[in-house]
Write a protein that binds this DNA or RNA. Structure first.
Lengths: 335, 335
DNA sequence: CTGAAAGCGCTAACAG
DNA sequence: CTGTTAGCGCTTTCAG
């Protein structure tokens, strides 16, 4: 990489002259400016980012900590973050906590050494189970703003972007009740997560209000359980079940395919709705009716909130929570 | 963030003393070392990463450019890269080219200003179609090493990590032929990509060698085509087709579900094999027989190769290509 | 054993 | 209009 120093030497002028010329300072003579710019062009000069960061005491870099990059929603949010960040000239450093509290702490620690100007993160499963929040508070008190999305720690004072999980599930369940479904089961493989719990509560509320059936819940343990087997044996044992509402896409897809496999007519005698993305809905015939999360928008919003905060305010003070509404995309797995 | 300066001031010693004490230099007295370390601990001192980068002229950061984070394989590779990088104390800056040549160029340019010590990337679709490679060469000539994975530009001299796409598809096709399948169709939605073409060639070779049928290929246009419709109408029109081999997971899952939907018995009278991951195989009943790519391992290898190169060698010289072999996981969609 | 000083690449206040 | 200087935070050589 060429430096100002080298350009200055070759041009026989001082470093600051070169710097000013490249920054279009009014102080420098037209002629000099031209000569400098030509040489800079020739050598493909780019200001050294690290030097600038040191000078300005900001890196124009956002730290993103994601629990699991294989989760489609989280990946999509990351996409949104990256897109919006790039638009504003920010880079993103990505760490994957792999749902581990320890790795999450480390990543936060490691990047809080001047590598980034702020964080966007979704809380790891282990962190939520243990209800740990000290590391977040510490980071914020060091002056580094945090924006949390999707899985958030409510007791931490920071900006948040969340989904209307409760309402979405409440409404979706009600739509199944309107179809006259009499025995709706809620299936979830994310019951340890805050969002999973909210979704279950939304389901419960709708069922209890309606008063025709008791809540019926099937919880899958990711990693441990054989997803297909668990759902198949459940549906076999509970022949009166006539609808599934799934908190995650896999449970939805598998439930629908299993129902078909068991000879049930979908949607005539059996309905399925799931939190899922468009490509998931292609994995069943008929196509799955889905609750869409607009994950990219979540990422975009999170990035916007963080950038705004980094440019203006202290890390805590007047924090906001933005709710990105879900929408239901009706396909042929419901009436 | 506390700095050496502040610690020095508070302790009434010089900056260099503090620095040395923290780095366990033999030069400094035991007592001083202890005092310094205690205060550093108290204030949670962390050496400023940016200052170190400037000093050492290396950032301990890897630039990763990925065409599409929603692609499961690419996301998994990213996971592998991040894991291995973290192990060696490297951070990763992620850019998403979104399959665009322009964005890929920009990202490369932008990060080549001292932000990263090297790159790991998979070539964007548009780049492969236009067969552009100048931007890669330029980056390498600037002294920044590149490791390419999966979709690589063969004419660029750099380290590469690839998959045995051709062989994998050749062998998988042969296994279908051994099942006495008489009319095997190759379905792909990635035909513009280098890997997609390799897979098609592997299929072709196996079919032509066997000599019983002509190659039969169905190409899906991502974005444009309705994936389900396209496959359904194809299978309806080609009733003699008795096996599908898919270059991508969606085509595999949809083909299998469609076959079932059309009343075909899988695997008795119809087989399906697809390049796909474990979770995809759960999206069909019976479970899909898959060609697995070991994507995480690809990421790990790529990171290892880059780190080795950054520590030792010039950016070009003695480049290596590593092939990460696929493996077939037999499930119940084949005999 | 401790400190002063230089330098990584850059900007900007201040002198000339 | 151009140059000198200081300083961002750190390490390291060289003096003391």
């Amino acid at each position: 990489m060429v430096t100002l120093k080298q350009l200055a030497k070759e041009l026989g002028v001082s470093i600051s002259t070169v710097s000013k010329a490249l920054n279009n300072s009014e102080e420098i003579g037209e002629d000099t400016v031209r000569r400098v710019k030509e040489l800079a062009e020739l050598y493909n000069y780019k200001p050294n980012k690290v030097a600038l960061s040191l000078k300005n005491n900001k890196t124009k870099t956002i730290g993103v900590i994601i629990p699991n990059i294989l989760n489609r929603i989280l990946a999509k949010v990351l996409f949104g973050i990256e897109t919006e960040a790039a638009k504003h000239g920010y880079n993103i450093i990505t760490c994957i906590s792999n749902e581990s509290l320890e790795k999450e702490k480390q990543s936060l620690q490691l990047l809080a050494n001047g590598s980034v100007d702020g964080f966007i993160l979704s809380v790891a499963e282990e962190t939520q189970i243990n209800n740990e929040i000290e590391h977040f508070k510490k980071t914020i008190s060091q002056g580094l703003p945090i924006v949390m999305f999707d899985r958030v720690a409510h007791d931490v004072m920071c900006d948040k972007v969340i989904v209307d999980d409760f309402d979405a599930m409440y409404n979706a369940t009600k739509s199944l009740l309107k179809e006259k479904r009499k025995n709706i089961v809620f299936i979830s493989n994310i019951n340890d997560l805050s969002v999973g719990k909210l979704r279950e509560r939304g389901y419960n509320k709708a069922i209890l209000e309606h008063g025709v059936q008791e809540p019926l819940v099937l919880k899958i343990k990711r990693k441990k359980d054989d997803h297909q087997k668990k759902i198949k044996s459940f549906l076999k044992k509970n022949r009166t079940v006539d609808a599934v509402i799934a908190a995650d896409s896999s449970s939805g897809v598998i439930a629908l395919n299993t129902a078909i496999n068991l000879g049930l007519k979908v949607p005539k005698e059996f309905s399925v709705i799931a939190f899922a993305s468009k490509s998931d809905s292609n994995h069943t015939i008929p196509k799955l009716t889905t609750i869409r999360q607009h994950a990219k928008e979540i990422g975009v919003s999170a990035a916007q909130m963080l950038i705004a905060r980094m440019q203006n305010l202290p890390a805590s003070a007047d924090v906001k929570t933005k709710i990105v509404k879900t929408s239901i995309v009706k396909n042929k797995s419901t009436l």
